[in-house]
Amino acid sequence: MDALSWAVFALGIPAAVFAGVSKGGFGSGAAFASASILALAFEPAMALGIMLPLLMLIDVSSLPTYWKKWSWPEVRLLLLGGVPGTFLGAVFFGMVEANAIRLIIGGISIAFVLWQLARASGVLKLGTRETSPAVGIAAGVGLGFTSFISHAGGPVAAVYLLGRRLSKTAYQASTVIVFWAMNVLKAAIYAVMGFFTVETLTINLVLAPFAVLGTWIGIRAHHVVPERLFFGLTYVLLTVTGSKLIWDALS
């Protein structure tokens, strides 16, 4: 696909801005919606290859704001599980076809919406009791696996971190540092697997300013803007894109 095609501008720019806003200031794993958007127009491997450098750029842009504001006990456990989880994701990705990945990305998108609605309605309650270190490591494994195959490790991290009752800033800082480390590891594996091409890197150059813009907006909105409207948009977006990916995979 031409790096300057309509799909890059129509889907790539909103995806880049959305990822920046979410990772810059509105946690709960919503940034992975950007990979779902790109997967509508690109093959899964290409969509992942496009998004990862943008996510890493966003990490670098937002990390100084949250530096050392994370909660190290939770971060350490997620990283301990995240490394083997990432390698499991790489093995799995190499064994299945593109439609299986579309189905997984779509399924995770819908599951995220259902999980958030269950939390909002009180059906699912987090933080009612202490969790063991094994839970944190298991969450890290799930984080690494889903992050590798769909950049969707955020929801798994959110389930664990929200259950730890961290402050809003400590939660956001913890997700930023964890995914910065995970994305560095993923980048090395993606390179070996051929996810990065001249075409994907050209698209990265086109979308990079919009990712930085989204990060700037997210950081400044973090302390002043209520998240309800943002997440409402996220739920609609994930429901539509998730349903479309599932339909494409099955048909």
Rank of each mutant, 00 (worst) to 15 (best):
V240E: 07
V192K: 15
G242D: 00
V236F: 12
G232K: 07
G214F: 00
F196I: 01
K186H: 03
A221E: 01
V236M: 10
T202F: 13
V224G: 11
A211W: 09
L229M: 09
N183A: 02
V236R: 08
A191E: 13
H223L: 08
T215Q: 05
G214C: 07
R228E: 14
M182G: 02
W216T: 06
G194F: 01
K244A: 14
T202R: 10
L233F: 14
V206H: 05
V192A: 10
I246Y: 07
L205H: 05
T202H: 12
H222T: 00
G218N: 10
A208M: 06
K186T: 03
E199C: 05
L238S: 10
V192Y: 15
I217V: 14
G242K: 01
V224N: 15
N204D: 10
F231H: 13
W216H: 08
T200N: 04
F230I: 03
V198Q: 14
L233D: 03
L213N: 07
F195I: 00
F230D: 06
Y235F: 11
A191R: 10
I189M: 02
V198T: 14
L213Y: 04
L233W: 00
G242Y: 00
V225T: 12
E227P: 14
E199R: 08
F210V: 09
L229R: 09
T241V: 08
T215D: 09
M193P: 02
L237P: 01
T215N: 15
K186N: 05
L185Q: 14
P209T: 11
N183W: 08
T241R: 02
Y190F: 15
L237Y: 01
W216Y: 07
G218C: 03
V184G: 01
V224L: 08
E199S: 03
A187F: 07
T202L: 15
N183M: 09
L185E: 12
E199D: 13
P226L: 09
F231N: 01
E227I: 09
L201C: 04
A208L: 09
A188G: 15
F210D: 11
T239V: 02
A208N: 00
A208K: 01
T202K: 06
F231D: 06
V240K: 06
K186G: 01
G242I: 05
I217C: 13
L238E: 07
L229T: 14
S243N: 07
S243C: 14
N183Y: 11
F210N: 05
T200F: 05
S243A: 15
G218K: 08
I219S: 09
V198I: 12
V236Y: 14
V206C: 08
V240M: 06
P209M: 12
G242N: 02
I189L: 10
W216E: 04
T241K: 05
K186C: 06
L201P: 02
A187Y: 03
V225M: 14
T234F: 02
L233C: 15
F231K: 03
V206Y: 03
V225W: 11
Y235W: 13
M182S: 08
L245V: 08
I219T: 04
